[in-house]
Amino acid sequence: MTRVLRWTGRESLLLRNALRKSGNAFAELVGVSMRQVRRWEGRGETIELNPDNQAALDTVLAQADRAAQQRFAALLTERAAAEHDERVEDLLRSDSRTRKHPVDGKVMTLVEEGIYLSGPDNRSVWLDSFLIDVYPTTNEDYAKFVAATGYRAPPHWPGGRCPCTLATHPVVWVTWHDATAYVRWADKALPTGRQWEKAARGPKGRPYPWGVEPTAAKCNVAEAGIDATTPVSRYQSGVSPYGVFDLCGNVWEWCSTEEEPGNGRYELKGSAFTSPFDRAAPSLQNAAAAVMKDNDTGFRCVSLP
């Protein structure tokens, strides 16, 4: 569950909205007057609530049902997630850098050839240029593949149909083999671990896609308290130097690189909504058996320029 270290009028309003309560009903729930609730909401972040009120709001949040807690967590992180970032607009406007793939229609961006700093020890590594999906493969993308090929749908789709509410969320419950079937259909490939890492860290090897600050609010990790996937375009303030989204958090992403040759385990990168923020650094290593599937594992694709 999301915890609030400092309740202001803004957090109080977000909690009321998440609970879907009227002002009077919310005031009664918290044990204050309607006039006081109006004052909090009118003052917003400029008013910090007294300890008794903060404790009351903590209790209301703790006693809320799971759906309301998830709505509150999403509202709480929304501003940081959508923070204006000129890099996104500039990079996605550049016709020379981005293009739509002819098969699955996804926007891809160019990662130029050259050296980048790789791994926890920042080794210099040369990579040829490649294109990478700006967003992870969504349920909507995967539905096109299922419709075109008759491939089995993920188990979380009711009746084998893509849920409208999850259309723009990353597809999950896919094995490495499922991801490989998709890329064969799309005439693309899964990224190598090094391609994925360069797309996330840029040529200068920054620790996180957005820079050097370990800011959990810029990605969907366990600390956000959302406890579910989010739309792939949500975290605009967390994009990489190439304008690539969700390279920290939301879902782990399959890569084509084996952990050790022949052992059937493949690298996973980026962490997920289930993972603590300290697992989100793109330089970190993780791997799983090719048959593994879970509610926090998806993929994105690369191709030749």
Rank of each mutant, 00 (worst) to 15 (best):
T2S: 12
R3H: 12
W7N: 00
T8H: 02
T8D: 05
G9C: 05
E11C: 09
L14K: 11
L15Q: 02
A18W: 06
L19F: 02
G23D: 14
V30F: 09
V32C: 03
V32N: 00
M34A: 14
R35W: 09
Q36K: 11
W40R: 02
G42P: 04
I47C: 14
P51C: 02
P51Y: 06
Q54D: 10
Q54L: 06
D58V: 11
D58L: 09
L61D: 10
A62Y: 14
A67C: 09
A68D: 12
A68Q: 12
A68M: 11
Q69I: 00
L75N: 09
L76F: 15
L76S: 11
A82Y: 12
E83M: 10
D85I: 07
V88R: 15
R93M: 09
S96H: 08
S96D: 14
S96N: 07
K100E: 13
P102G: 05
G105W: 07
G105K: 08
K106I: 07
L110M: 08
V111E: 01
E113Q: 15
Y116V: 02
G119S: 06
W126N: 02
F130K: 02
T137P: 03
T138K: 00
N139H: 07
E140I: 03
D141W: 01
D141R: 03
Y142V: 08
A143W: 05
K144C: 00
T149M: 00
Y151I: 03
P154S: 00
P154A: 00
W157Y: 00
P158K: 02
P158C: 00
H169M: 02
V171F: 02
T180S: 15
A181S: 07
A186G: 11
K188N: 06
K188F: 07
K188R: 14
L190K: 09
T192R: 04
T192L: 05
A200M: 10
R206G: 13
P207N: 14
Y208M: 01
V212Y: 10
K218N: 12
C219K: 03
C219H: 03
A228W: 12
T230G: 01
P231T: 10
V232M: 11
R234N: 07
G238E: 13
V239T: 05
S240Q: 09
S240H: 14
P241V: 11
D246I: 04
D246H: 09
L247H: 09
L247Y: 01
L247N: 02
W252D: 03
E253V: 00
N263S: 09
G264V: 08
G264F: 13
G264E: 08
S271D: 08
F273P: 00
F277K: 03
F277W: 00
A280P: 02
A281F: 05
P282V: 03
L284N: 12
N286E: 06
A287L: 04
A290W: 12
M292S: 00
D294H: 13
N295I: 06
D296L: 06
D296H: 14
T297H: 11
G298R: 04
G298S: 08
F299S: 04
S303R: 06
